[in-house]
Design a binder for these strands. Structure first.
Length: 461
RNA sequence: GGCGCGGUGGCAGAGUGGCCAUGCAGAGGACUGCAAAUCCUCGUACCCGGGUUCGAUUCCCGGCCGUGCCUCCA
């Protein structure tokens, strides 16, 4: 069996993946805060870890993939104030949209998709443990994690406590013992969402939810923790601090998660995508114009840890690539796929096992498509389909995807068939001028004709 | 300032100490009444300067350029 290698942010090395328990692999990835439509950066994270979860499933008997939804956060509160809608209405709405958009990209719902607001007791318990062990303290209704109490702090990002405060942009609040300390719990005003706690009515800080939910649904330590590269610091660093300290593990940063995997950022025309730049690309909008598979393949066109530049050109190239793949599938429509007995070494599986090398995998898919087209062998078709499944593409009907037999807007199929018949007659009579005239007529209707040995077929342009 | 990443053909994007990435675009050919689709073939690609080596795009050193994080962010 091919061995999986992953770039581990914690050790900064590409390592062989060895599960803690080969009978049950456990994966966690930080999901979105739901206060707006998902953008293509959110989608990259979702697609990458969906792919990783799938890969693990093909390698191990049981995999649990947990990815959270953050539904309590100051940005959500701000959105509620702006729109005049309650927080839970906003979070339900956008969580729903998120899941629908991701489904369109072929992303399966994670095995567990926990929400922060349904894990408040677990967070409170975790905070109490941290206080009891001397890693956290209360001040003016806040509870803070005391960074100097964890000497190993900063090991993931390679940043020391001093580095963190050197920027001097961390909030220096009067209730902090150390400038680097971060909030575990904060008080809520009566109109803000809040929960009763030993420290009064309040709400959790950002980092504690992931520590609590990962522990609740996976147990500690677990195998792989993922998320966007920007989360490495401070979010993931703080998660490690909380979870390690709560377990009394002051030295071993891998006592929370063994492997840390970070996906790179998406830029738009080489510019950072940010609300402030006004260049966010929403999945919801892109789906109006492109098929979900096109977006998925475009997101996988660069290896996950590399930056990915999102451009119109990328989408068009990707769409063409997909068209060609579907075309080869169409040529093989009459072949019944059949697995070959010695088909263990799937080149796409092999590429993905090399730190999720999706460009290599896509290249391999191209090879398989060509090979299958040449040999028309049942096992070559099976290999192509197996590879495509692994990548989550070519999941649709080829004819439909390519537009064969699909009438264009306000053109009915009967009319097309009629013209096609007339053209056939003209061709039979060697009246090619008339045949070309009909072709032109159909082109203007948005219909293309292709002559095949078994007669003419048409498709939507 | 601290930590990190990257510079590969027209574009996207892998990879390797000596031979092929792949896709898109482009050129030629087969096929076709024409076309489309498909198949075949093709392009003297690896930022600059040193070093190691029989041989470096690939390893080492230096430089130039670009970029991410350090503040909410996928």
């Amino acid at each position: 069996m091919t061995a999986l290698k992953l770039q581990n942010s914690l050790t900064r090395k590409k390592e062989d993946f060895k599960p803690i328990d080969p009978a049950h692999v456990r994966l966690y990835a930080c999901g979105p805060t739901v206060y707006n439509f998902a953008h293509i950066g959110n989608a990259r994270m979702a697609v990458v870890f969906d792919l990783l979860a799938d890969l693990l499933r093909s390698l191990y008997p049981k995999v649990t993939y947990v990815s959270n939804i953050t539904d309590i956060d100051d940005k959500i509160i701000a959105a509620a104030r702006e729109t005049g809608r309650p927080c839970d209405e906003i979070t339900c709405k956008y969580a729903d949209i998120y899941n629908r958009d991701m489904a369109a990209l072929g992303v399966k719902t994670p095995d567990v998709q926990p929400r922060a607001t349904t894990h408040i007791p677990q967070m409170i318990a975790l905070i109490e443990t941290l206080i009891a062990k001397g890693h956290a303290y209360e001040g003016q209704g806040h509870v803070l994690f005391n960074v100097p109490s964890f000497p190993a702090y900063g090991g993931l990002s390679g940043r020391s406590r001093d580095d963190q405060i050197a920027g001097a942009r961390v909030e220096v609040a009067p209730y902090k013992r150390d400038p680097a300390d971060f909030v575990l719990w904060k008080p809520s005003t009566p109109e803000q969402p809040g929960w009763d706690s030993p420290w009064g009515r309040g709400r959790p800080g950002w980092h504690i939810e992931c520590s609590a939910m990962a522990q609740e649904h996976l147990g500690l330590p677990f195998d792989i923790h993922g998320g966007g590269a920007d989360l490495k610091f401070p979010h993931h660093e703080n998660e490690i601090a909380q979870s390690c300290c709560a377990q009394g593990q002051l030295k071993d940063l891998s006592a929370f998660a063994k492997f840390w995997v970070h996906n790179g950022f998406v830029t738009v025309n080489t510019q950072k995508m940010a609300k402030s730049e006004g260049n966010t690309r929403l999945v919801h909008d892109l789906l109006q114009q492109y098929d979900g598979e096109t977006l998925r393949l475009a997101l996988l066109s660069a290896q996950y840890s590399q930056p990915l530049d999102w451009t119109e050109n990328l989408l068009q190239q990707t769409q063409k690539t997909l068209e060609r793949l579907y075309q080869s599938l169409r040529e093989l429509a009459d072949i019944t796929p059949e697995k070959n007995s010695d088909q263990h070494d799937n080149p796409i599986l092999e590429a993905l096992c090399d730190d999720l090398n999706t460009p290599k995998a896509i290249a391999a898919l191209g090879h398989l498509a060509r090979k299958a087209a040449q040999t028309r062998a049942p096992f070559d078709k099976a290999a192509l389909l197996a590879g495509a499944n692994l990548l989550g593409v070519l999941q649709q009907d080829a004819d439909a995807w390519l537009g064969y037999g699909q009438p264009a807007n306000d053109v009915d199929a009967a009319k097309i068939e009629n013209l096609l018949q007339q053209r056939q007659d003209a061709r039979k009579a060697k009246n090619f001028a008339r045949a070309d005239e009909i072709r032109q007529e159909l082109t203007e209707m948005g219909i293309a004709i292709e002559d095949t040995p078994s007669g003419a077929v048409w498709k939507k342009l």
